[in-house]
Amino acid sequence: MADAQDKILLEYQVPGDDFTRAGEASADLKARLKTLGFPAASVRKAAISLYEGEINLAIHAGGGKIRVELTPARIEMWLDDEGPGIPDIALAMSEGYSTAPDEVRSLGFGAGMGLPNMKKYTDEFEIASEVGRGTHIRMAVDIGPA
């Protein structure tokens, strides 16, 4: 990643309702970022925010697609699904608010911290959603010093 023109594209498909596989994309991304020599703090931010996104795709959207673009300057991630959508994004962004079902909560999820964590651990966070059509999220982590 020494050349500013370098760009790496990654794609992941997240299955719905499979919580044992949710996390594979973020684990793979983390391993790749470490191998490529990205700073540890940036790797941690990207891995945490992508994991939360993966879990949300599995819990709420019946799965979805993740695209990642790596450059020396930033890690940019897009999460797209065709799930039920979010009626009130402001409410969904508030800490502690969750619509996760009880069986998901029993696994330790559903604390209402997913979207807030994604925003907290990224330098740019955008979300758009339409009820009945799906949700689209763009997140970016700027590369800080090593």
């Binding site: 996390g23 696994l107 330790g108 999820f109 911290m113 964590n117 907290k120």
Partner: peptide, 24 residues
């Protein structure tokens, strides 16, 4: 024990005490 809570607040290099022994 709430995973997103731990994800957002557990410090790097921490010893994380929990009862969650799952793959997640």
């Amino acid at each position: 024990d709430l995973l997103s809570w731990a994800m957002g607040r557990a410090g790097e290099g921490c010893a994380w005490c929990t009862v969650m022994g799952s793959v997640n």
